[in-house]
Design a binder for these strands. Structure first.
Lengths: 226, 226
DNA sequence: TGTCGATTGTCACAGATTTGTCAACACTCG
DNA sequence: CGAGTGTTGACAAATCTGTGACAATCGACA
């Protein structure tokens, strides 16, 4: 379970954040002000920090810098009111990795926290190489070879393919694909997905007319089989 | 079929939302104001709530909190005008899970609702593999094997079968089947059900003429026996 | 035990829905 | 502007689903 440290003074927001992260399976520590924040940080050794910039006592900015000094690759996600004058330069200077302005939905916050954690895990991960049939994919290089030949894929195609490779054998609905691969700012038609499947088939199947790996599950979605 | 509760006072928006969700296969309840919202919530026990923050009578914020108090893990998706000052009222505090600002596209709203429902279902993961006799069903793969042989089922057949598997040994009336499997904006003939049972028998019974698993209970309905 | 109305089994087929496929359009970025 | 990419609409093809017709079966009742 991933540990997360929340630095936030407002008790109501504290509670809300704790609930949000706990229900998402995080192990949550909370520090109410700058003074104890660093102690808690050293004691808990969190995987990621969520920091409200507006704090009593030691300013959020100082905390941010201090944490980065002690542990450069712990991601910090900054919360700030929309009214705050936030320039990205400042955030960069502070060493923050991402920021969310209020109001934000728990969903968005979670998505960003997860993304940060994922990046972290990925960075320390080994090269991502998959293979099936006569196809070899290297996601860190964004390269795909088919029986030795380099086959160019577009970014979207890589993303789609990766999701399928991570979820083999399972039927995946178009809706799930939209949410997981396209993300939550884009809501294209389901037709879009069919087209992308079509292209993957044309590039990766021996006989795109009779697909073996990218199977249609009529009325439900698609399924990837090695 | 998933139940959704829409809390919204503007009749035009009400209609639009109802249409959107119904055509996506949701079972929609609508509450027009705060006073009846909670009653409807308790009566309908929806899977997810879509709430307009601007309401006459009891404010949307109160409703939000109240619902969360009664049922912490029912997701709430808040609708709000872009002009609303959301700053001070942290959605987090309210316990809302996500929000969409007007104007929003039906597609976006739908996608968010579905994402919320899917997260919910993921959390309460249920076993997806069943077996009886020489039959093995894997619902996440949407595959059914009978003595090792792959037997193709249509979506409706999978749905029907799943309902029977979740309700073994119990006599199920046609009406109940229609409501639970077909959903009650569809009004097929009861003949339809007989036909589907027939098809399941033909695919899954050793002797479809003398069914062992899909038994007829004359004058009442059907019963599934392992 | 036999009859009769009601219920269920069975089948084929048309209409509806879903998917495949392609070409055109939109958008981004240099 | 132009190349590369992603999205959409249109239409055909594939697949599924509901329905009516008729046969078979059941159960109540005399």
């Amino acid at each position: 379970m991933e540990k997360i440290l929340v630095i936030e003074d407002d008790p109501a927001v504290q509670r809300a954040l704790r609930r949000t992260f706990e229900s998402a399976g995080f192990d949550v520590s909370v520090a109410a002000d700058g003074a104890v924040a660093m102690e808690t940080f050293r004691a808990a050794v969190p995987r990621i920090v969520v920091l409200d910039l507006r704090l009593p006592g030691k300013s959020g900015q100082d905390i941010c810098r201090e944490i980065k000094r002690e542990s450069a690759n712990t991601p910090i996600l900054v919360l700030s009111a929309a009214s705050d004058v936030l320039d990205k330069v400042l955030l960069l200077e502070l060493g923050a990795d991402d920021y969310v302005t209020k109001p934000f939905s728990p969903r968005e916050l979670l998505a960003r926290v997860r993304a940060a954690v994922r990046r972290l895990n990925q960075a320390t991960d080994k090269v991502e190489i998959f293979s099936f049939d006569d196809v070899e994919v290297n996601f860190s290089k964004m390269e795909l070879h088919r029986s030795g030949q380099l086959v160019p894929l577009t970014p979207q195609e890589f993303k789609t393919l990766r999701f399928f490779l991570n979820n083999p054998e399972r039927v995946i609905s178009r809706t799930e694909l939209l949410n997981e691969v396209w993300g939550y700012n884009n809501y294209p038609t389901t037709r879009t997905i069919d087209t992308h499947i079509l292209r993957l088939r044309q590039k990766l199947e021996k006989d795109p007319t009779d697909p073996v790996h990218f199977r249609t599950v009529h009325g439900t979605g698609y399924k990837f089989v090695r």
